[in-house]
């Protein structure tokens, strides 16, 4: 009974948030709607016994992605009204596609054999088991997809650098190795002139001073 009510509440929250994302006039409100969607999705995950996935959703989607969205929205100057232009002509086509997809999915779900994967509701076992289960298979059974995921992240890193890094030749850089390896002999010349035989110091008259004097 209570899980059912919770399920309904979370699902309603997801739908509300998703509607807000599309319908909100102010993109900030839209991002807030997105956060609402993520939080409710996390609730659903936890309800179905996938507590790790739920927490991950909150950490990654709310904590990282939605916050980044907010930062971007706050930093850039966009005309919100202009963004919404041309929304209306596409609305019927969009609604049609959504209606078709929804009808397809509802039909598919209604006419399916009843033994869809059984719904697991919270309260299995004394301790959260997801992390243990994931840890057991992530580096053994699923080592290959895990490594491939690592390569995808490497690609993202290379890509971010390729697309944003500009070599600048007009900037002087510190060369630590050269600095550390510099010896006394490279930097200065020691002379031992006899007393009285050294060069006589000329009058110090740098250009900047000379100019001022002229002026």
């Amino acid at each position: 009974m209570i899980p059912d009510l919770l399920f309904l509440a979370f699902s309603a929250g997801i739908l509300l948030g998703a509607t807000l994302v599309i319908a909100a006039r102010n993109p900030m409100v839209g991002v807030m709607g997105m956060i609402l969607t993520f939080l409710n999705a996390a609730g659903l995950f936890i309800l179905f016994g996938a507590e790790f996935l739920g927490l991950l959703t909150i950490m990654v989607y709310v904590g990282a992605i939605a916050v980044m969205f907010l930062f971007v929205l706050m930093t850039i100057d966009i005309d919100y009204i202009k963004l919404k232009e041309g929304f209306a002509p596409y609305l019927p086509a969009g609604l049609l596609v959504v209606a078709l997809l929804a009808a397809e999915l509802i039909l598919a779900a209604a006419h399916s054999p009843a033994q869809l994967t059984p719904v697991v509701v919270v309260g299995q076992g004394p301790q959260p088991q997801n992390v243990v289960a994931l840890g057991q298979v992530l580096f053994t059974t699923y080592a290959l997809p895990f490594q491939i995921a690592g390569f995808i992240l490497l690609t993202a890193m290379v890509g971010a650098i390729v697309l944003t890094h500009r070599p600048r030749n007009d900037v002087k850089r510190q060369n630590v190795t050269a600095q550390v390896l510099r010896k006394r002999e490279d930097a200065m010349v020691l002379t031992r002139p006899k007393t009285g035989a050294g060069a006589t110091a000329k009058h110090w008259n740098p250009k900047s001073v000379a100019k001022k004097v002229k002026a």
Binding site: P145, I148, T155, G159
Partner: peptide, 23 residues
């Protein structure tokens, strides 16, 4: 399907980046 999806993404991402190389 898991390996398939990982392969699909690893194949695609470098191509997206390369398409935008002339930034």
């Amino acid at each position: 399907m898991l390996t398939l999806y990982m392969g699909l993404e690893l194949m695609s991402f470098p191509l997206y980046i390369m398409a935008a190389l002339a930034r």
